[in-house]
Amino acid sequence: MKSLLSLLLASLLSVFSLPGLAQTPEAQSLLASVLALKPNAERGEAEFVAQACSACHRKDGSGKSAGNTPRLSGQHGAVIIKQVLDIRSGLRHNPPMQPRVTEQSLSLQTLADIAAHLQALPISGTIAKGPGSGVARGKELFAKDCAGCHGANGQGNQATFVPMVAAQHYGYSLRELEFIRDGKRGNSNRAMASLIKTYDQDDLLALADYMAQLPAPQRK
């Protein structure tokens, strides 16, 4: 059986060949180099605090309900690494985070260590839910348009860098959906962005409402 690292590295060739996820050769190489590192989750736990990540994302990785700080606990390590590198390069627009993830501020080994720590964390704390009125509509939309990539239970896919969207704060999910629709995220899958543009605001509210109430996927 191939190791997870082998699968991730092999996935780079197929995933980044998709039009919606096109990356420069330099970006592919940098991501591959981080994935090839041997992470140390215990060291990552200490660095998560030392780098002041826990000040916003909380020590347990549960984030905040305000809408601008996601829950990172249990998130796929490869997803965290890719998103941080996209912020560093400017591909993903996140001004508050950008100075914290520069080459001078955050080494690649530290990034790998922190990602391993966050992936290993249990999904705890209170996840901010939506009003509940859009769950039924959101479930229909998710099954039709989202489950094919994000999984039927919102579990995401480490090998293809697709984030877990289950058990995420309602406000954060809604904000990111709006950013994708409005072209403000920067590194969005183009196929997803085109799809989201067909949604009206009520659809986005419903989708965020549904995803926030999805239970955290069981660890294998």
Score class of each variant (00 low, 15 high):
153 N>D: 13
206 A>M: 05
137 R>W: 10
192 M>C: 09
195 L>Q: 12
127 I>D: 02
147 A>C: 03
187 N>Q: 10
163 P>T: 02
205 L>R: 12
139 K>A: 14
188 S>E: 15
158 Q>D: 10
92 R>C: 07
185 R>G: 01
159 A>F: 11
143 A>N: 13
126 T>Q: 13
168 Q>N: 09
176 E>N: 12
190 R>L: 15
99 P>H: 12
162 V>N: 05
162 V>M: 05
154 G>V: 08
181 R>V: 10
99 P>K: 08
101 V>G: 08
124 S>I: 12
103 E>G: 00
174 L>P: 01
140 E>I: 14
101 V>Y: 12
110 T>V: 15
142 F>S: 05
112 A>M: 04
186 G>R: 06
133 S>P: 00
189 N>Q: 07
117 H>Q: 11
208 A>P: 03
157 N>R: 11
187 N>E: 10
202 D>E: 14
100 R>M: 12
163 P>H: 00
165 V>I: 15
99 P>L: 09
206 A>L: 07
154 G>M: 10
187 N>V: 06
181 R>N: 11
93 H>A: 09
126 T>V: 11
151 G>T: 02
161 F>L: 09
158 Q>C: 00
121 L>S: 04
120 A>S: 15
204 L>Q: 06
122 P>R: 08
114 I>P: 07
107 S>W: 11
92 R>M: 12
185 R>V: 04
105 S>Y: 00
190 R>G: 08
118 L>M: 12
197 K>L: 13
96 P>S: 09
180 I>R: 01
139 K>D: 04
200 D>I: 00
109 Q>V: 11
131 P>L: 07
131 P>R: 09
101 V>I: 10
149 C>A: 09
200 D>Y: 05
167 A>F: 01
170 Y>L: 04
95 P>R: 07
151 G>S: 04
102 T>G: 15
203 D>Y: 04
140 E>G: 02
109 Q>G: 06
170 Y>C: 02
172 Y>G: 02
104 Q>P: 00
151 G>R: 03
97 M>V: 07
175 R>K: 15
104 Q>D: 08
207 L>V: 15
194 S>F: 11
177 L>G: 01
100 R>W: 05
161 F>K: 00
